[in-house]
Nucleic acid binder design. Structure first.
Lengths: 218, 218
DNA sequence: AGGGACGCTGTGAGCGTGCTGAGGAGATTC
DNA sequence: GAATCTCCTCAGCACGCTCACAGCGTCCCT
């Protein structure tokens, strides 16, 4: 999952990056309104965390322009203001959720997950495909009720695939969303991790579609 | 837009009904957990506003059961609690948004609109010609509901033809679009692959127009 | 009916794509 | 500082897809 964080307070930005990366997200940070807008336009992110007070262009304005261009990526707004009308303004100009600073990290994560779930075609709190279950809140995976131990990368890969069951997902797409796009990673890494996953969740769960990508059997 | 409000405090329920109706929504109110669950199952609502503290069945439980039944209508939870973990729990058990009492009516409306805006996620349409179906996202082809296994090239060829059903497509055009235009490929390759396709999707599906090209029978 | 152009298909070589085991680099733990 | 874990690269291997080739069948025109 790729996230865009637009925040000009460098300490908060760094802390968000660290925390979200630890959860397995791929995180890019922009510090200005125009920079964030540009990144959102071209970056192919799964969601965006956006401060209201930004140099160059306010968060409100960034969302408004994105929506005007028919870009619908989920946007979670952050603001120091907490008057109710400010909140309503943020939502009405196109944001999907709103948090006031100071906010709790746990709440941020929960709302972010809710947001990502909402954007997906189906949005169970626990993802389930066959006897495979993945609980994003607890970061736990079970297969026929037996727990499966996964590393961060394996988990992120399975998470991404389970949000698109039955669909073919290309190696490039996986590299963009599960790996860090800034780092050049060989496509072979995907093959290697698909191999690891197959050993843990069952060989036939994860089909190879030659020349196209991988598909999680439904 | 039809809304379901599940709330047992009659004064709050009445006020919500009045306010939302004034905004043009059609509003039904249920006062108990089981009643709300039942209404959500059968009512065909566009969204649901759900209190956590309910007689009979808690709001958490109602959402969890709905999601377990694969019902994905947007749910906005209301609660008097405001501990951060409660909020996280509500979202993780399947709600899409969360408000704590007392809440401002303006905020409620804004969040509701944000929720409704995230309607059905667009999914690339499935191409269908006769009993032949091609799903680009799943990269899957079925003929009379039976899956047809295709190689990359066969799939690309069928994809191109199915986007032009009934039209005559020349071999040159196919070489340009389905094969790599930069690489010089013999026109015979097209004939070979048309042959393969015919064996898999049915001989009469793919007509030869001598001297002009091929046509997918509609 | 005959000839020529066009299209079809079986065969097989070449190579692209994906899988795997081994191992090095970096982070973390004891 | 050693042991462990995780991530990722590399090289070798195997499968099966792709396509050229050649021979035959089919269609159309005279």
């Amino acid at each position: 999952m790729r996230l865009l964080v637009v925040e000009d307070e460098t300490r908060l930005a760094a802390s968000l990056r660290r925390g979200l990366q630890a959860e397995g997200f791929v995180v890019d940070v922009e510090a200005t309104g125009p920079g964030g807008l540009d990144a959102a336009r071209h970056g192919d992110y799964d969601a965006m965390i956006l401060d209201v007070m930004l140099p160059g262009l306010s968060g409100y304005e960034v969302v408004r322009r994105l929506r005007a261009e028919e870009r619908w990526l989920p946007v979670l707004m952050l603001s120091a203001k907490d008057g109710e009308y400010d909140q309503a303004d943020g939502l009405d100009c196109g944001a999907d959720d709103y948090l006031t600073k100071p906010f709790s990290y746990v709440v941020l994560l929960a709302r972010l997950r809710a947001l990502l779930r909402r954007g997906a075609p189906e949005r169970p709190a626990v993802l389930a495909v066959g006897d495979l279950r993945l609980d994003p809140a607890r970061r736990r995976v079970t297969r026929a009720d037996a727990e499966v131990a996964l590393t961060t990368r394996e988990y992120a890969l399975l998470d991404y695939l389970m949000r698109r069951p039955g669909e073919v997902v290309s190696k490039t797409e996986l590299l963009d969303h599960v790996w860090d796009a800034a780092v050049e990673t060989a496509p072979n890494a995907v093959e290697v991790y698909v191999g690891y996953l197959r050993r843990k969740i069952g060989r036939d769960r994860l089909e190879t579609v030659r020349g196209a990508g991988y598909r999680l059997a439904t």
